[in-house]
Amino acid sequence: MSFIDERGFWFGLYWGSQSVINAVFLISVSYLVAATSWRWFYWLLTILVAFGSVLGFFLLAETRYERSPSSLDGQVSYTDEFGVTVVLSDDEAIERFGTRQEIQDNTTEPEQFSYLHHIKPFHKVAPNALHVGAGVLWKMLQACSSPAVIWSILAASISLGIGIAMSLCYGTILVESFHWSHASVGLVNAGIFPAALLSMLWAGYIGDKIVLWLAKRRDGTHIPEEILAVLIVPTIVSAVGIVVFAVTAMWPETHSSWGIIMGWTLLEFGFLVAIITTTHFASEAYPSNPGSALVMVVGVKNIVSFGAAYGLTPMVTKFGYLDAFMILFAIFTFIFLMGVPVYYINPRWRAYISRSS
């Protein structure tokens, strides 16, 4: 649970810390592979995934929480166990729940449980699990009708896809063109540490302040689309990083390896802010089902980004590094510029969905 002016911070903390852990893995594993064999990359990855799965199974708290509907001024507000909130008239509430829940002045505080109480590694199957699962899947598909969700998926995907494309070739470039040892190639990821910290600062603390300032200009009214303002500077930084990386890769004889390092670092900063902001934006821009929108952006981006990464090798073979990355640069620029019409279209879509429901 978080307030609107805190969400950027929590999204930033989640994605930024994840990137720092990933950077530690990439830097250390290059020395491991150089000392043993490439197979140990996958062995170590398997060990870490298995360890994380065990920790998650035993230590993650149960998140299903049943809330009672509450009635106030002739309307009933009900939030289900998946966090979806609906507002019903009393008649609709009686039809749905069989009774009308009244708010009493002497309502007692709900019992507070400890973290240990919520840890339930083994528990019975949720009631109507198949029905609920089908409903969640349908809500996820419905989320794709939102312009905000579609754009968020594309923006996160192209940023991730270009990042993967860079990671596929920076090792070859550093070893063959700049004569780095294979063991030290992982050091190119050292820039992720400051990039992650800056992205958490920008998309988290500063981003929340920007959203609050824009809300004050609307007499205290916040709209989800104003979150997109946080992306302006990081998008420019990412674009510069793509160009720097491409030019250095194309003409290494006239450039330093710092071009590869800085291009990768700048892109990672922009990517982290993009993934923080797009997940934040999608969860607010589809208020009736924020969980479904969030899952679609986080999950589908990995599928869509595959196209950008997969197309790099044939493009480099045919056109060279500069043209290949400029093609990706053009796609990147087009998608992020589409955020401008989304800013104006999505409020109308949200109003239409509100009237329909």
Score class of each variant (00 low, 15 high):
V240H: 02
Y170D: 12
L228W: 14
S177Q: 14
L137E: 02
L154G: 11
R217A: 10
I162P: 01
S257E: 14
N128K: 15
G135N: 15
I162K: 05
A165D: 01
E253D: 11
A229C: 13
N189Q: 14
S257M: 08
E226V: 11
I162S: 00
A246E: 00
I227N: 15
V211C: 03
G133D: 13
A196F: 03
V175L: 01
V243R: 05
I261P: 03
L168P: 00
K139R: 15
W202H: 12
M250L: 09
T172W: 08
I164T: 04
L201W: 11
I153G: 13
H255A: 13
I223A: 08
R217V: 03
M200V: 13
H179C: 00
V230T: 15
S157N: 10
L231D: 15
G241P: 01
I227A: 12
P127D: 12
S199N: 01
A155Y: 11
K139M: 04
I261Y: 07
I164L: 09
I153Q: 09
W202Q: 07
G191Y: 03
F245Q: 06
C144V: 01
S184R: 05
K216H: 08
N189S: 14
M140I: 02
W180P: 04
K209T: 02
V188T: 13
L201F: 10
A190K: 06
I153P: 12
M200P: 03
L130T: 14
V237W: 00
L231F: 14
I173T: 07
V243E: 01
M140N: 05
I173D: 08
P194E: 01
T254H: 15
L130S: 15
I173G: 08
V240L: 04
I206T: 05
V149N: 04
S159A: 11
W151S: 06
E253N: 14
L137S: 13
L174V: 03
W202M: 06
I206A: 11
A229Y: 15
V247F: 03
A129T: 11
G220R: 10
W258E: 07
T248V: 05
M250P: 01
G207R: 07
C144H: 00
V185P: 07
L160M: 09
I173V: 15
M140V: 00
G220W: 08
I206H: 13
V247A: 05
H222V: 08
L201D: 09
I261G: 07
G161E: 01
Q142C: 01
P234D: 06
A195C: 03
L198Y: 02
S199A: 15
S181V: 06
L154S: 13
P224D: 08
L198E: 04
S157W: 09
I223F: 11
F193G: 09
I232G: 10
V233G: 07
I158P: 07
K139E: 07
P147N: 00
V230D: 14
P252S: 08
P252D: 07
L174C: 08
L141E: 00
I153R: 11
P194Y: 02
S159T: 09
W258I: 09
E225F: 03
M262I: 12
V136E: 15
M166L: 09
V243G: 05
L174E: 06
S181F: 10
